[in-house]
């Protein structure tokens, strides 16, 4: 198995996911299988191949700097779980 429980715990933290012990175990086994499968790419020699991040291969698409109306503050805040009509409200970031 290419992934340990500790690896998966660390990744869950990086991904900001809280997983139960049972979820972590199941995830370790399933991700292990998937990682083992994708490891087959290692057998290919890609020494002088340039990576293709985008099929369009566009570079530097510029738009004219024309101001135009955007969504209002009220519209933008309309979907927020908690807001005070000016800002998003979140739990304390710095100590209590």
């Amino acid at each position: 198995m290419s992934l340990s429980l500790a690896d998966v715990q660390k990744v869950a933290m990086l991904a900001r996911l809280q997983l139960s012990d049972a979820d972590l175990e199941r995830m370790t086994s399933q991700l292990g299988q998937i990682v083992d499968y994708v490891n087959q790419l290692a057998e290919l020699d890609t020494e002088n191949v340039s990576p293709l991040s985008h099929a369009g291969e566009l570079v530097n698409v510029f738009a004219d700097d024309n101001p135009r109306p955007s969504l209002t503050r009220a519209e933008v805040l309309s979907g927020a779980p908690k807001q005070d009509e000016e800002c998003y409200r979140v739990p304390a970031v710095l100590g209590e």
Binding site: V38, L41, A42, L44, T46, V49, S50, P51, L52, A55
Partner: peptide, 15 residues
Amino acid sequence: DAYYLKALKVRRRIR
């Protein structure tokens, strides 16, 4: 490098 970058290189080969 081993996963994302490698996959982008194989993607080029596929294209």
